[in-house]
Simulated assay, not measured.
Amino acid sequence: MKIADLIAWFEEWANPAWQESWDNCGWQIEPGVLQEQARVLVCLTPTLAVMEEAIAYQKAGISVNLIFAHHPLIFNPPKSLCSGNPIAEMARLAFTHNIGIYTAHTNFDQVQDGTADVLAQILELEQVSPIVPTQAGLGYGRVGVLQPALVLQDLLTKIQSRLNPPSLIVSPTADLQQKIDKVAVLGGSGASFISAVVKTGAQVYLTSDCKFHQFQESRDRGLILVDAGHYATERPACDRLVHKFRNLNLDWVQLSQQDEDFRLFIR
């Protein structure tokens, strides 16, 4: 499948027009690869480490020509591109090695089998619906039912074992044996959705990047907030995307092994 056909297939499923006004989905760098057979490296964040990984594959005889990322390389238009600047270096290497960079961000968050849906599936939630619907059947986050219900301690253990985050941050609660039967999830930075989650009646909200006072707000509103980290809550959707691409019989597709969490927890 040519890269142009792969992108057309993807955009029919997760239309870039659905992105938020502040977002930058779609082509970040397109160095003239549209008519080439797609050989794709999927990642969460397009960094120099991922670019170097793609180049290493090229040197090993696998002509990777597309980095398909969840996070945009460019959020705001740069005023200059100078040597040593990470975006400038990514652009230089992309054109030098003929590697395109394409991003699917808030459009990918909303769709079936996107970031939120995959989290809901990992936790085996049933009767799932969006926290904030945006169009028929789609939207941000997912809320669903645990059948059978789990005590909070067992749910936290399940989250830890399924997502393998370096750390879990949890709202203080006096009862780890509390029965939990309704859970909300949203991969990435989901603290701004706390009010919407409360309206769903969920007892637990799994997301990331929550601040001190957002934990206070959740506690005061009777919601148990679980922060598993940005990387752990979104990386599984990248893995799912690799499997979808493989079903299209691409020449080659792999999940990046150089994706970074950007956080190190010292115990």
Results as ranks from 00 to 15, higher is better:
3 I>P: 13
7 I>W: 12
13 W>A: 10
16 P>R: 14
16 P>Q: 14
17 A>Q: 13
18 W>A: 10
21 S>C: 00
27 W>F: 14
28 Q>T: 11
28 Q>I: 09
30 E>A: 12
43 C>F: 06
43 C>Q: 07
44 L>D: 09
45 T>N: 13
49 A>F: 07
54 A>E: 04
57 Y>M: 08
59 K>R: 15
60 A>D: 13
63 S>G: 06
63 S>L: 10
64 V>G: 05
68 F>Q: 02
68 F>Y: 13
70 H>N: 08
74 I>Q: 05
77 P>E: 11
79 K>I: 05
82 C>G: 00
84 G>N: 05
84 G>L: 03
85 N>T: 03
86 P>W: 14
90 M>D: 01
92 R>D: 04
97 H>V: 00
99 I>T: 04
102 Y>Q: 04
104 A>S: 13
106 T>M: 07
109 D>E: 07
112 Q>P: 00
114 G>H: 06
122 I>M: 14
125 L>A: 11
132 V>L: 14
133 P>Q: 13
133 P>E: 15
135 Q>I: 04
138 L>G: 01
138 L>F: 07
139 G>E: 02
140 Y>V: 13
149 A>K: 14
155 L>W: 02
158 K>L: 12
160 Q>L: 09
166 P>Q: 08
167 S>F: 10
167 S>C: 09
168 L>P: 02
172 P>K: 08
174 A>H: 06
175 D>G: 00
179 K>N: 08
181 D>R: 04
181 D>Q: 11
193 F>E: 05
196 A>W: 00
197 V>L: 01
199 K>M: 09
200 T>Y: 04
200 T>H: 01
200 T>E: 04
202 A>V: 05
204 V>K: 01
207 T>D: 01
209 D>W: 07
211 K>Q: 10
213 H>I: 02
220 D>L: 14
220 D>Q: 15
220 D>M: 11
222 G>H: 03
225 L>E: 05
237 A>Y: 07
239 D>E: 13
239 D>N: 06
240 R>H: 12
246 R>Q: 15
246 R>D: 07
246 R>N: 09
253 V>W: 05
257 Q>I: 02
258 Q>Y: 01
262 F>W: 06
